[in-house]
Amino acid sequence: MRRLFLGSARLGALPAWLAALPAKPRRAVLVPTAANPLPSAPFVDAAARLLRGEGLLVERLDLEHVDSAADTVSEAQLVFVTGGYAMFLLQHARRTGFDRVVSRAVREGRLAYAGVSAGAALTGPDLRFFQDAEDPGVCASTTGLGLAPFTVLPHRDRGRAERHDRYAARHGGPFRFVSINDDQAVIMEGDTWEIRPSPASRHDQ
């Protein structure tokens, strides 16, 4: 059964989601790749601190600097993908096989997935919304992991609500979009999902 935590920025709902997983994860793979083009990304260390605070062993996997993601991911029960540039993340997820390995493991219930911002959007069917933004990286296709039947559009409360709604109305077609504020997260289990509050935690910066 697929189990996903898809946030915008805040991590307040993450500990409860972790605690509700059928088997408590022991090892987590933290993927900071989307943040690499940013001048500063304190949220990467914030996520690592939270995961360690929940008792997990955390290993970083920067997809930009590896050839394959298979071995590292196979040893984990949780993958956490941070925010940053969605198309840059997608480019390296494809190149390293991260997309295929993670999609298979999550669908089979062997791996839980947590993603924030770009990391949340990656799970959707299509990331073309982000191709038109400021993302670096060139992808021949904008197809996402397809783990969720919708694409998360984060940071709605940062003045992006109108743009999100306009895009969803214009490009709804075969895809769906879920626009969320920074203090919200989409929790998905199997084929069901809901938006929950996810306020700032003591680990957020």
Rank of each mutant, 00 (worst) to 15 (best):
G119P: 01
G159Q: 14
L11C: 04
F150A: 07
N36W: 11
G53H: 14
I187D: 03
V31S: 06
H92M: 02
T96Y: 04
T151G: 01
R94G: 03
R3D: 11
G119A: 09
S201L: 05
S201C: 05
L63D: 03
G55E: 05
S179R: 09
T143Y: 01
F175P: 00
R158G: 12
A28D: 12
A47H: 14
R94P: 00
V138E: 15
V106T: 09
D132E: 12
R156S: 11
E108K: 07
L18Y: 06
G124C: 09
H203R: 12
L11Y: 07
Q205R: 13
L61I: 01
S198C: 00
W193Y: 14
A112K: 14
D191S: 15
A70M: 04
Y113W: 13
L145W: 12
A169I: 03
D135W: 13
G109K: 15
I187V: 13
V178K: 03
Q184I: 02
D157F: 02
A140S: 12
A47W: 08
S179L: 04
S68V: 04
S179G: 01
A69L: 06
L89N: 10
D135V: 02
G172R: 09
P25F: 02
L111V: 13
H65Q: 12
F43I: 10
T192E: 15
T96A: 01
D204N: 09
P15L: 07
D132L: 05
E194A: 15
G97S: 04
V73P: 00
D191C: 12
A148D: 11
A23F: 10
S68T: 10
G119Q: 08
R95H: 10
L11H: 10
S201P: 05
V66S: 08
R60E: 13
F130W: 11
D191Q: 15
P154T: 11
R60S: 08
F88V: 03
G173D: 14
R158V: 12
R160P: 00
V73Y: 02
I180E: 06
T192F: 06
F5Y: 12
A70P: 00
S201F: 10
T123N: 06
L90S: 03
A185R: 08
L153S: 02
V138K: 14
A48I: 06
S117I: 11
H164Y: 05
L90Y: 04
A112R: 15
V73N: 05
H171L: 03
T143S: 02
L63M: 05
G84H: 06
A23P: 01
R107P: 05
Y113C: 07
P149T: 11
A34C: 09
R100V: 01
H65A: 02
A46C: 12
T143A: 06
R10M: 03
A28G: 12
Q184Y: 05
A19Y: 03
V44M: 10
P15V: 02
I187E: 07
R156P: 00
L147Y: 10
F129R: 07
V101I: 03
S40T: 10
L51N: 10
L111D: 12
P32I: 15
A16P: 00
A118S: 10
R176G: 01
R196L: 05
G146R: 05
V29E: 12
G144S: 11
R163V: 08
F175R: 05
Q205T: 07
